[in-house]
Simulated assay, not measured.
Amino acid sequence: MLVEGGKSRSGGLCVYIRDAQCWNARLVYQQCSPLAEFMIIKCRPFYLSREFSSILLVAAYIPPSSTTNRSEALYELHQHISEQQTAHTDAFLILAGDFNHANPKSVFPQLHGHINFPTKGKNILGNVYTPHSGAYKALPLPHMGASDHTTVMLMPAYRPKVKAVRPAKKVVRVWPEGSTEALQDCFATTDWSIFKQAGIYNDITDHQEYTETVTSYTRKCIDDVTVTKPITLRANQKPWLTGDVHRLLRERNAAFRAGNEAGLRTARANLSRGIRVVKREHSRRMADRFTRNHHG
């Protein structure tokens, strides 16, 4: 990589991850050029807030020689990070490294820097950026070995959404099995002409009263065949999480508590399959919504 970067000595990137914290880290992209060196690592620690599916850890180094091509170096970084963010929409992004005089916020305005003290001499050359301003508290530590950069310790300060935002109560309508057929039978046996006759005065049809009467009757029929129940919405709840997924989760948990290994394997497979289906349906609905808004 040093040869590809145009340097004969020094430079290079290295990331260490403790096995006790995370053992599934994998390199998803790396690049080394005279403009910039960076690698993107995807991992999921054992302890991670529910609203995040994984972590995208980006280690970057923009050499001082890229001063004249600073925008090109940041463009390369932005392009490949954006591709990974598109592929992993729920991932938490951490961008760390030595940027010298380049400012990643020029291409990532939504990121927040967490280091506000000099990291080399009187300059802040290294920094750590995340999308959340209060994610970490940075503390300076002595230099490691013969390094001329200050060591930085980041203390987690992020407060999960489930604790920062109160749960919301909502009443939803549930359609029991057979309710759709019952509603269709109700409509099929209804004499709709009586509503029109009730809205006629002096041979003139009052369309507003006619509409309100039919709407009230339709609403009553729906109330007769359905039930309502209160639910709790939490801030970290996934938008694709449906009743079917909750049912599959309960089946998996029940098989685990019962110690049924064969049933647990089946329940886990059904859960994975069910999650893939609802995610696909949610993505299709979102795409249709954007398409309608675009053409509307």
Rank of each mutant, 00 (worst) to 15 (best):
G5E: 09
G6W: 07
G12P: 01
G12H: 02
L13I: 12
I17C: 10
R26I: 05
V28Q: 07
Q30H: 15
Q31Y: 11
Q31W: 04
L35C: 00
E37H: 04
I40Q: 00
R44A: 01
P45G: 01
F46D: 14
F46R: 15
R50H: 13
E51H: 03
F52W: 06
S53K: 03
A59T: 12
A60I: 04
I62T: 06
S66R: 01
A73H: 02
L74T: 02
H80M: 08
E83Q: 11
H88Y: 11
L95E: 02
A96I: 11
A96P: 01
F99T: 01
H101L: 13
K105S: 13
P109Q: 05
L111I: 07
L111S: 07
H112S: 09
H112T: 00
I115S: 03
P118V: 09
K122S: 13
I124R: 08
V128A: 02
H132C: 09
A135D: 01
Y136R: 00
K137D: 05
K137V: 12
A138H: 06
P140T: 06
L141T: 04
G145N: 09
S147L: 06
H149V: 07
T150E: 08
T150M: 10
P156I: 02
A157Q: 11
R159M: 10
K161M: 15
V162W: 04
V162A: 06
V162D: 08
K163W: 06
K163Q: 13
A164E: 06
R166L: 15
K170A: 10
V172Y: 06
G178V: 04
L183N: 05
F187K: 02
W192S: 04
S193V: 05
I200A: 01
N202W: 07
D203Q: 15
Q208P: 00
T211Q: 12
V214S: 01
T218F: 08
T218S: 09
D224K: 13
R234T: 15
N236M: 06
W240E: 10
G243C: 02
R247L: 04
R250I: 06
E251F: 04
R252H: 02
R257C: 03
N260S: 07
A267I: 03
A269Q: 15
A269L: 11
N270C: 08
L271A: 05
R273L: 02
R273Y: 02
G274C: 10
K279R: 14
R284T: 14
T291H: 11
R292I: 02
R292K: 11
